[in-house]
Amino acid sequence: VRLVQFQKNTDEPMGITLKMNELNHCIVARIMHGGMIHRQGTLHVGDEIREINGISVANQTVEQLQKMLREMRGSITFKIVP
C-alpha cells in the first residue's frame, strides 16, 4: 500500500478512467496520454484505489467517485495498492 499525492487547482480533468473489478475494488482502467495524472506519472493502469483523501471508496459507484474527484481542489491523496 502506498500514498500518492498531487495538486488539483483547476477544472482540468485528471485524465483517468476508473472501473470496479469483480471484487468491487476501484481500479485505474485507463490513463489519458498528456492528462494531469499521466504528466505526474504517479498512478498506473491496474492500480487499486482504496481511499481518496482518507475516504474509503468501498461501496461507492464509479459515477460517485468521478463526481467527487471532479469537485475536489487542492491537495488530493490516493491510498493505492499497486
Results as ranks from 00 to 15, higher is better:
12 E>H: 05
43 L>S: 01
76 I>C: 11
23 L>I: 15
65 L>T: 13
79 K>Q: 12
53 N>M: 03
13 P>L: 06
59 N>T: 13
12 E>T: 09
67 K>R: 11
27 I>N: 03
44 H>G: 08
56 S>V: 09
66 Q>I: 07
15 G>M: 02
18 L>S: 01
66 Q>Y: 10
5 Q>H: 09
27 I>G: 01
18 L>K: 01
3 L>T: 15
65 L>H: 03
37 I>H: 04
41 G>H: 08
66 Q>N: 12
28 V>H: 00
57 V>Y: 02
60 Q>G: 05
60 Q>M: 10
48 E>H: 07
78 F>C: 04
73 R>T: 13
13 P>M: 07
2 R>V: 07
82 P>I: 04
4 V>Q: 02
73 R>M: 08
43 L>K: 00
23 L>R: 15
42 T>N: 10
28 V>R: 00
46 G>A: 02
47 D>R: 00
74 G>H: 03
69 L>V: 10
33 H>S: 13
39 R>A: 11
61 T>D: 11
61 T>H: 08
73 R>A: 08
50 R>A: 11
74 G>L: 01
23 L>N: 10
11 D>L: 07
60 Q>L: 09
16 I>P: 01
10 T>G: 12
13 P>I: 05
3 L>S: 11
60 Q>V: 06
23 L>D: 15
13 P>C: 14
36 M>N: 08
20 M>K: 15
5 Q>P: 05
32 M>R: 13
22 E>G: 14
57 V>Q: 01
14 M>P: 08
41 G>P: 02
56 S>C: 06
13 P>S: 10
14 M>K: 01
62 V>N: 14
80 I>W: 03
26 C>H: 04
69 L>G: 03
54 G>M: 04
53 N>P: 01
42 T>Y: 08
28 V>Q: 01
64 Q>T: 11
10 T>S: 14
77 T>A: 11
69 L>T: 07
20 M>F: 14
7 Q>H: 14
53 N>H: 01
28 V>A: 02
68 M>E: 10
76 I>R: 00
15 G>S: 02
20 M>T: 07
53 N>Q: 05
51 E>T: 03
5 Q>M: 15
16 I>T: 02
5 Q>D: 10
44 H>S: 13
35 G>S: 14
25 H>I: 08
9 N>E: 15
48 E>W: 09
9 N>Y: 07
12 E>V: 06
25 H>V: 06
48 E>P: 00
33 H>P: 14
66 Q>D: 12
18 L>W: 02
46 G>R: 02
76 I>Y: 03
64 Q>W: 07
42 T>L: 13
32 M>T: 14
25 H>D: 05
74 G>Q: 03
11 D>R: 11
3 L>M: 06
78 F>T: 01
59 N>G: 14
75 S>R: 12
75 S>Q: 14
50 R>K: 14
8 K>E: 02
53 N>I: 01
71 E>H: 13
55 I>Y: 09
68 M>L: 11
27 I>Y: 13
75 S>D: 15
32 M>G: 07
59 N>C: 06
65 L>W: 09
26 C>G: 01
28 V>T: 02
14 M>W: 10
77 T>E: 11
44 H>T: 10
53 N>C: 04
79 K>G: 10
82 P>S: 12
69 L>I: 08
43 L>M: 12
71 E>L: 08
65 L>D: 00
18 L>A: 01
22 E>I: 05
70 R>Y: 10
27 I>D: 00
70 R>C: 11
27 I>C: 05
40 Q>I: 09
66 Q>R: 07
14 M>Y: 04
24 N>Q: 08
76 I>S: 02
57 V>N: 01
35 G>Q: 07
8 K>Q: 13
25 H>R: 12
12 E>L: 06
45 V>G: 02
22 E>H: 10
50 R>Y: 05
49 I>D: 04
37 I>Y: 03
53 N>G: 05
36 M>Y: 15
34 G>I: 02
21 N>F: 03
28 V>S: 01
42 T>A: 13
70 R>H: 14
34 G>A: 04
37 I>K: 03
70 R>M: 12
43 L>N: 00
45 V>M: 11
71 E>K: 13
57 V>W: 01
50 R>N: 09
28 V>Y: 01
80 I>R: 01
82 P>K: 06
75 S>Y: 06
62 V>T: 13
9 N>Q: 13
49 I>F: 01
60 Q>N: 13
70 R>K: 12
76 I>W: 04
10 T>D: 11
39 R>F: 03
77 T>L: 09
27 I>L: 10
81 V>M: 09
10 T>W: 08
60 Q>T: 07
11 D>I: 06
59 N>P: 05
16 I>V: 08
36 M>G: 09
37 I>C: 11
4 V>G: 01
69 L>M: 11
76 I>N: 05
80 I>Y: 05
4 V>I: 07
26 C>Q: 01
22 E>N: 08
13 P>K: 15
71 E>N: 10
37 I>W: 03
39 R>L: 06
14 M>G: 03
60 Q>Y: 11
77 T>N: 07
34 G>H: 09
61 T>G: 12
6 F>H: 05
1 V>T: 14
60 Q>R: 13
53 N>F: 05
62 V>D: 11
44 H>Y: 08
15 G>C: 02
68 M>G: 09
18 L>E: 00
63 E>C: 08
10 T>K: 11
71 E>A: 11
82 P>Y: 02
18 L>N: 00
21 N>E: 06
14 M>R: 01
46 G>Y: 00
67 K>Q: 09
58 A>R: 11
10 T>R: 09
46 G>Q: 02
15 G>Y: 01
11 D>T: 15
15 G>W: 03
18 L>P: 00
63 E>Y: 08
81 V>H: 08
64 Q>S: 12
35 G>H: 08
32 M>Q: 13
32 M>H: 13
30 R>C: 09
29 A>V: 07
75 S>L: 15
82 P>T: 10
37 I>M: 12
1 V>W: 06
53 N>A: 03
56 S>F: 04
40 Q>Y: 06
6 F>P: 00
82 P>W: 03
56 S>L: 08
40 Q>G: 07
43 L>Y: 01
6 F>E: 02
68 M>H: 12
23 L>G: 15
8 K>M: 07
38 H>L: 03
9 N>V: 13
51 E>G: 09
36 M>F: 15
70 R>V: 12
22 E>Y: 14
29 A>P: 00
55 I>H: 10
47 D>E: 03
35 G>T: 12
1 V>E: 15
78 F>H: 00
52 I>V: 10
38 H>E: 15
72 M>K: 08
68 M>Q: 12
13 P>W: 07
27 I>V: 10
19 K>Q: 12
62 V>R: 07
7 Q>K: 12
10 T>A: 08
40 Q>A: 12
30 R>A: 14
3 L>D: 06
27 I>H: 12
40 Q>T: 08
69 L>H: 01
43 L>W: 02
21 N>W: 02
82 P>R: 09
76 I>H: 02
21 N>Q: 04
7 Q>N: 14
28 V>E: 00
17 T>Q: 13
39 R>Y: 03
